[in-house]
Amino acid sequence: MSLTKEQIAQRIAKEVKDGFYVNLGIGIPTLVANYVRDDIAVEFQSENGVLGMGPFPLEGEEDADVINAGKQTITTLPGASFFDSATSFSMIRGKHVHLTILGAMEISEDGDIANWKIPGKMVKGMGGAMDLVASAEHIIVAMMHTNRAGASKLLKKCSLPLTGVKCIHTVVTDLAVLDITPNGFVLKERAPGVSVEEIVAATEGKLTVPEHVPEMIF
């Protein structure tokens, strides 16, 4: 009964507020824009130099020159602007981005994140994640709760090279919504049909479970 990637994005979209400037990482985070309420104004920023990203283009309408940081073709909304990477990272480092949504390979109970490299595997580069996690007012991670072998990705300590230290505030997985506090993970919501016991078993890091844990509402 775990969530699909689309459902993870749908749940995260509820955290996007009117007037927010939002940076979306590659993977699941790019889907969040599909579920943001129509009655609020949100500006999506991409660190390669776009402000005002729209939905993905329809097949046959792609423009190879209009892409996001993940090299995916995108559309832009009326009033969108393009600029160089220096300006883009000035926005990010100047804390003008209210919310960053990105994926992760591992998260620790202290709020550390590892999402840019697996030793021994080819990597294109660290991208903008290190600047984003160091600068954003609020960071939400979208990820699977366990790896393909069933081992937890919410750990006591990350085993992979870190992208940022003590910077993650909220994690939305296919099983649950969790906040990260000085006392570790706190279970806030569970996916429909998923039990608290399943979430506890899938979480290696320290996990606090309130007396009542509601199911997510979509």
Rank of each mutant, 00 (worst) to 15 (best):
T4G: 10
T4H: 06
A9I: 04
Q10H: 12
Q10E: 15
R11G: 00
R11Q: 06
A13K: 01
K14C: 06
D18F: 03
Y21K: 13
Y21L: 12
V22R: 01
V22F: 00
V22M: 03
L24R: 02
G27D: 08
P29E: 04
P29W: 00
N34Y: 00
Y35P: 01
V36I: 15
R37H: 11
V42H: 05
F44R: 01
Q45L: 13
E47M: 10
N48Y: 07
N48D: 01
G49R: 03
V50Y: 14
G54L: 07
G54H: 09
P55G: 10
P57S: 10
G60A: 07
E61Y: 12
D65M: 11
D65Y: 11
I67R: 15
A69W: 04
G70V: 05
G70H: 10
G70W: 00
Q72I: 06
T73S: 12
T76F: 11
L77D: 00
P78F: 05
G79R: 07
A80W: 05
A80T: 02
F82L: 12
F82N: 00
F83S: 05
F83T: 07
F83A: 08
S85Q: 14
S90T: 10
S90L: 12
S90V: 00
R93G: 01
G94M: 04
V97F: 00
T100P: 00
T100R: 02
L102G: 11
L102D: 11
M105P: 00
I107W: 09
S108L: 05
S108M: 07
D110V: 04
N115T: 13
I118Q: 11
I118V: 15
V123Y: 09
K124W: 07
M126N: 09
M126T: 08
G127L: 06
L132I: 12
L132D: 13
V133H: 06
A134H: 09
E137M: 07
V141A: 05
M144Q: 14
M144K: 14
R148D: 14
R148K: 15
R148A: 12
A151M: 10
S152C: 03
K153S: 13
L154I: 03
L155V: 07
K156T: 14
K157C: 06
C158S: 02
C158W: 05
C158V: 05
L162G: 03
T163Y: 01
T163K: 06
K166F: 02
C167P: 08
T170A: 01
V171I: 13
V172D: 01
V172H: 02
T173E: 08
D179L: 09
G184L: 10
R190H: 09
P192F: 07
P192G: 08
V194R: 07
V194I: 15
V194K: 04
V196R: 13
I199F: 09
T203S: 05
E204V: 03
E204F: 02
G205H: 09
G205C: 08
G205S: 09
L207K: 10
T208Y: 11
H212F: 12
V213N: 09
V213F: 03
P214S: 10
P214K: 04
P214E: 10
E215Q: 13
I217S: 15
